[in-house]
C-alpha cells in the first residue's frame, strides 16, 4: 500500500517524464524530488488528478530552471506550416525505426520534443491534450509532430537503405 498519493508505478512514470525533460538521471531525480516536495506542501487535499497536477509542477519547475539559466526556450515557439493542420500523432504510427537510430535521435532531440513523444507513446495522449499540458496552441503541437515526422522518416529511410547494403557487404 502506498504511503501518499503516488505509488511506485506512478513515481516511476513521473521519473521517466522528468528524464525526458532533463535527459540526465541525477537532474531528473532532483526535479522529481523537488516537485514532489512542492506538491506535498501546497496541493489541495482533494486534488482530483494528482498525477496531472504534479506533472504540471514538474514542467513549470523545469521551465523556470531553463529561464533562470538564461536559456532560450527555442522549441516552445514553432511556426505553423499549412500542411501541418492535417497532421496528428497518427502520422507517426507508420514509422519503423531501429533501436540504434532511435537512441541517436533521442539524444539530439530537445526537451519538449522528448516530452511530446513520451506523452504520445507511453501515456497515450492526444495532440490536444499535449497542447493543454505544454500550454501551447494545438497548432504548435501539430507543427512539432510534423517536424518530428520529417526527421524520423528521413532517418528511418536511411536505415532501410543501409540494411540491405550491409547485408550485401
Amino acid at each position: 500500500m502506498a504511503d501518499g498519493p503516488f505509488d511506485r508505478a506512478m513515481l516511476n512514470r513521473l521519473y521517466r517524464y522528468c528524464l525526458a525533460l532533463t535527459k540526465h538521471e541525477a537532474a531528473a531525480y532532483d526535479l522529481l524530488q523537488d516537485g514532489l516536495e512542492r506538491y506535498l506542501r501546497s496541493a489541495p487535499v482533494d486534488t482530483r488528478d494528482p498525477m496531472a497536477l504534479l506533472r504540471r509542477i514538474l514542467r513549470n519547475r523545469f521551465v523556470d530552471g531553463l529561464r533562470n539559466r538564461g536559456e532560450q526556450l527555442l522549441s516552445e515557439a514553432v511556426p505553423l506550416e499549412p500542411e501541418c493542420l492535417a497532421i496528428g500523432f497518427g502520422s507517426l504510427e507508420d514509422i519503423a525505426i531501429t533501436t540504434q537510430t532511435l537512441e541517436q535521435i533521442w539524444d539530439r532531440l530537445g526537451p519538449f520534443d522528448r516530452e511530446l513523444l513520451l506523452l504520445w507513446a507511453v501515456e497515450g495522449r492526444t495532440a490536444r491534450e499535449v497542447a493543454e499540458l505544454q500550454g501551447v496552441p494545438h497548432g504548435t503541437v501539430l507543427a512539432r509532430i510534423h517536424r518530428l515526422r520529417r526527421r524520423l522518416s528521413a532517418q528511418a529511410e536511411q536505415d532501410a537503405d543501409a540494411i540491405p547494403a550491409r547485408g550485401n557487404g
Binding site: L92, T98, L118, A121, V122
Partner: peptide, 14 residues
C-alpha cells in the same frame, strides 16, 4: 526495425 511507438515505449520504460 520496429514500430516507432513500440520502440519509444521500450526506450523510455527501460
Amino acid at each position: 526495425m520496429s514500430n516507432l511507438r513500440e520502440a519509444l515505449r521500450q526506450r523510455i520504460e527501460r
